[in-house]
């Protein structure tokens, strides 16, 4: 009972919502980069409890199903094929035992998600099935998938799709994301803040699940950006001494010693999670109060 990995792609990991209440011990949250795509995938296959899914990066995996399953592919468009027939994204799809599901290159976006009804059944570690590669923790043996791995899945329970479907998103290569200033915006000059909130920054190829490094105009600080370490959240924009911002993503360290000019709001993080090197991003100021209103809609 499971899914055999025929070829994994460069970085395919088991992820869920992330590992929480252990960051005070220095343990990173990990978890999916694009929670909108992940949540859609889970909802499509009737998962409601933060079940673990696969996150694939740039190039998808080829998988052989050892037992029948309901699946959904979301996020980046990786032109998935089930035994040579194209698989519609953002739909629940039936796979029968012995079929091969092959994902290709990401044509739009960069991270594809595959959810299976019942979830990928790896053992939870500290309350999460997310893979933390740096700490060799959780997921499938604490590492990225390799050819020959067999991912355990749950036994089918008779669930059938409810007819739910989503319009697949289109990821733009020039994007705008909203940022709440702070908590250390006072470390930057008015000119520095103006630069940050007006320039277009390019996603550097030197970006990963830990953070997106950005190329663009340097952000002027008052007198350096070293601070006494404080806590970090997914979406925090820190500015090291060189003045080039870094957006901290799912695999961020728990604490850091650089001033944070702002934090990308949670609604806009999926755009960054799908950003490819060379894409550009602009940061748009939003107040914490206005951002709260978005949750009421």
């Amino acid at each position: 009972m499971g899914i055999l990995v025929k070829s994994p792609g460069p970085l395919t990991t088991v992820q869920d919502e992330g590992r929480f209440f252990h960051q005070s011990s220095g343990i990173r949250p990990s978890g999916v980069m694009d929670d909108a795509a992940y949540e859609a995938a889970n909802a499509l296959v009737g998962n409601g409890n933060g079940e673990a899914a696969l996150e694939m990066t740039f190039l998808g995996a080829t998988l052989e199903f050892q037992s029948a399953a309901w699946i959904a592919a979301t996020g980046a468009d990786m032109r998935a094929k089930l035994d040579d027939a194209p698989v519609e994204r953002y739909r629940a799809v039936r796979v029968v035992a012995g079929q091969a599901l092959a994902f290709g290159m990401a044509m739009n976006g960069c991270r594809g998600y595959l959810a299976v009804h019942g979830g990928i059944d790896v053992p939870p570690v500290m309350g999460s099935r997310s893979t933390d590669i740096g700490a060799s923790l959780g997921g499938f043996q604490g590492r990225a998938l390799k050819a020959g791995d067999v991912l355990p899945t749950m036994k089918e329970d008779g669930w059938t799709p409810t007819g739910l479907n989503y319009e697949p998103p289109v990821y733009e290569s020039a994007m705008a994301v909203r940022v709440i200033p702070g908590p250390q915006e006072e470390y930057f000059t008015a000119k520095g803040l103006e630069t940050f909130f007006s320039a277009a920054y390019e996603i550097s190829p030197n970006s990963d699940r830990m953070g997106l490094r950005l190329e663009g105009p340097e952000i002027e600080s008052r007198s350096g950006t070293d601070i006494v370490s404080d806590g970090i959240v997914f979406g925090a924009v820190q500015v090291p001494s060189g003045g080039k911002p870094i957006v901290l993503m799912a695999d961020h360290q728990t604490t850091g010693g650089y001033a944070k000019i702002g934090t990308v709001i949670s609604f806009d993080l999926p755009k960054l999670a799908q950003a490819r090197p060379g894409d550009t991003v602009r940061f748009v100021r939003i107040s914490a109060e206005d951002a709260q209103e978005l949750y009421k809609k």
Binding site: F20, F21, Q23, S24, P29, V228, S229, D230, G231, I232, V233, T254, T255, A288, E289, Q292, Y295
Partner: peptide, 23 residues
């Protein structure tokens, strides 16, 4: 409240805005 990170100088408190408001 889903997470707390204490540091030298601060306590970071992560919360779910759908459950508790910032205010």
């Amino acid at each position: 409240v889903r997470e707390m990170i204490p540091t030298y100088r601060s306590l970071l408190v992560e919360y779910n805005p759908a459950v508790i408001s910032m205010q």
